[in-house]
């Protein structure tokens, strides 16, 4: 075993239509890093195969077409199905995996699978890391002893600005916006693309929920701040296409810039 500094322990994977990158800090043997990353990467690739709505033979598509009963699905698909129902209820219906006329759990699967990938690294003793799924991030531990992770939040309107820089000890930061993927979030009650807000950033303990809440808030539009304020353990920032911003008091406390 070669001792090495994991400060350079970076890895990147194209999966689920995005790029997932890992940054692992703290001293760790190279073989351990390799084993842990192999497991995390294999997990994400399995998730991609199983939950893809683009691959016709995926388990999610077979279930959606009625070829598989719920009992015939693997435990992970059943778990994600349950999460979709829970998050639909927890967001007053604004997070809706059925909004497009079929079951599309993609809005849960990315955050959930990244949370699980982070769990895999932790199970290997790699407690200081970031897993970044296309700008939605799960963080654990610290970048170095005594320090705190710093997360920049991209400004949705100004190409040369940040909307915030946050000190995040551990947890998740998810941003849902209309600027990079276009108007891709539907208001499930009107069936129209959500366009009242430019972006929503949610900070919380896990990415599964933070990501779904950010998506739901984007769909809510003007009602989002009132709802976000009621959430326990989650803080948020909202920006409008006119360049106005709103954030919870807790979000303001996380700001370093």
């Amino acid at each position: 075993m070669t001792p090495c500094d994991a400060g350079g322990g970076l890895a990147r994977l194209e999966v689920m239509g995005t790029v997932v990158s890992f940054a692992i800090r703290g001293p760790a043997p190279a073989t351990l890093l390799e084993r842990a990353l192999y497991e995390a990467v294999s997990w994400l690739r399995w998730v991609d195969e199983t939950f893809s709505t683009y691959k016709s033979g995926s388990e999610v598509n077979r279930f959606d077409r009625g070829e598989l009963p719920p009992s015939g699905c693997c435990p992970e698909v059943r778990q994600v199905l349950a999460l979709c129902h829970q998050l639909n209820q927890g967001t007053g219906g604004f997070f809706d995996a059925w909004a497009r006329g079929r079951w599309d759990p993609s809005g849960v699967v990315k955050g959930w699978s990244i949370d699980r990938a982070s769990d895999i690294l932790l199970a290997h003793g790699l407690g200081d890391h970031i897993v970044d799924g296309g700008g939605d991030v799960r963080l654990r531990g610290a970048p170095r002893p005594g320090a705190t992770w710093t997360v920049g939040v991209r400004h949705p309107l100004q190409r040369d600005a940040f909307a915030a820089a946050l000190a995040v000890g551990a947890g998740a930061v998810a941003t849902s916006g209309t600027y990079e993927r276009g108007l891709h979030v539907l208001d499930p009650f009107t069936g129209r693309a959500a366009c009242t807000l430019a972006s929503v950033t949610v900070v919380g303990p896990d990415l599964t929920t933070a990501d779904a809440y950010a998506t739901a808030a984007l769909a809510m539009g003007r009602a989002a701040p009132g709802w976000l304020e009621t959430l326990d353990g989650y803080d948020a920032q909202v920006t409008t296409p006119e360049g106005r911003g709103w954030s919870t008091e807790g979000f303001k406390r996380l700001r370093v810039a």
């Binding site: 970076l10 990147r12 995005t18 790029v19 990158s21 940054a23 970031i130 970044d132 296309g134 700008g135 939605d136 991030v137 963080l139 970048p143 992770w149 710093t150 997360v151 920049g152 939040v153 991209r154 949705p156 909307a163 820089a165 930061v173 998810a174 941003t175 916006g177 990079e180 972006s199 950033t201």
Partner: peptide, 14 residues
């Protein structure tokens, strides 16, 4: 002062 990761921007932050 390092930004460790960027939320809402993909691909290039690392």
């Amino acid at each position: 002062v390092n930004i460790d990761v960027v939320s809402g921007a993909t691909f290039t932050s690392d």
